[in-house]
């Protein structure tokens, strides 16, 4: 089944619960009203450089990655989010093709420390997962927002405490957007949607990268 098919299935299952549906509508409604998804980094824009720790505590520098080739930057909400987990798995499946196109992939989440490792799948060439501490890089990409109260209560009901996971009490989470950046740091593809159940199609990302490869070195 395609990623979209699987995400649709997760959505159909979970939104049958009235509480989850109300919280989902609150998030999507808040983002739509504020027009958050329209203010994010656009195709043609410059990616802000960043240096963030990975699950091993090593600092990863965006310019070092760009020195090697194009970069896919994807934001996800955390290992508590089933849509994010399935999307990471789907990206992992196409990782060999991303590498074959000479590119790298990093997945950024506001989760810190031990919660970061939860997202890694043992023994797989998992995407490099980076801790976007306090959502600092998410803010520069324009994807950061504050979770509404009803959504926080819902998460609390599932035992998910973002204060503990993020190491701050801001309740900031990113829109799970994906970007493809060429070696000059210019955004060449962006997928941003206020509806967090909709994600970039990994196949589309691979095609963008293969297109960049055929452009040759710039």
């Amino acid at each position: 089944m395609s990623l979209k098919g699987e995400l649709d299935k997760i959505r159909a299952d979970s939104l049958s619960d009235a509480r989850i549906e109300a919280a989902y509508r609150a998030v999507v409604g808040q983002l739509s009203r504020a027009g958050t998804a329209d203010q994010t980094l656009k195709v043609g824009g410059s990616m802000p450089p960043f240096m963030l720790p990975n699950a091993a505590g090593r600092l990863v520098v965006s310019d070092e990655l760009l020195a090697k080739g194009p970069l896919v930057v994807t934001f996800f909400r955390g290992s508590w989010c089933p849509y994010c987990q399935r999307t990471l798995e789907a990206l992992e499946e196409v990782l060999p093709r991303i590498h074959a196109a000479g590119a790298e992939l990093v997945a950024l989440t506001p989760d810190t420390g031990v919660y970061l490792s939860e997202s890694e799948t043992a023994g797989h060439p998992s995407p490099e997962i980076l801790s976007d501490v306090d959502g600092a890089v998410g803010l520069q990409f324009g994807v950061l927002f504050r979770a509404p109260d009803i959504y926080r209560d819902l998460l609390a009901g599932f035992g998910v405490d973002l204060r503990e996971r993020h190491g701050n009490e801001g309740w900031f989470i990113p829109i799970p957007a994906s970007f493809v950046v060429d070696r000059t740091g210019t955004v060449r593809y962006a997928f941003v949607n206020a509806d967090f159940t909709l994600r970039a199609d990994p196949e589309e990302i691979v095609q963008v990268l293969e297109g960049l490869k055929s452009e040759g070195p710039r």
Binding site: P49, M51, L52, G135, A136, E169, G170, F172
Partner: peptide, 25 residues
């Protein structure tokens, strides 16, 4: 909200400036 917004902005500057400072290894 003020302290949280200060934190995120400060870290934004730290994440960017330190990345730039390591440009040429």
């Amino acid at each position: 909200m003020k302290p949280h917004l200060e934190d995120v902005l400060r870290n934004t500057q730290a994440a960017t400036t330190t990345a730039k400072s390591l440009l040429k290894l």
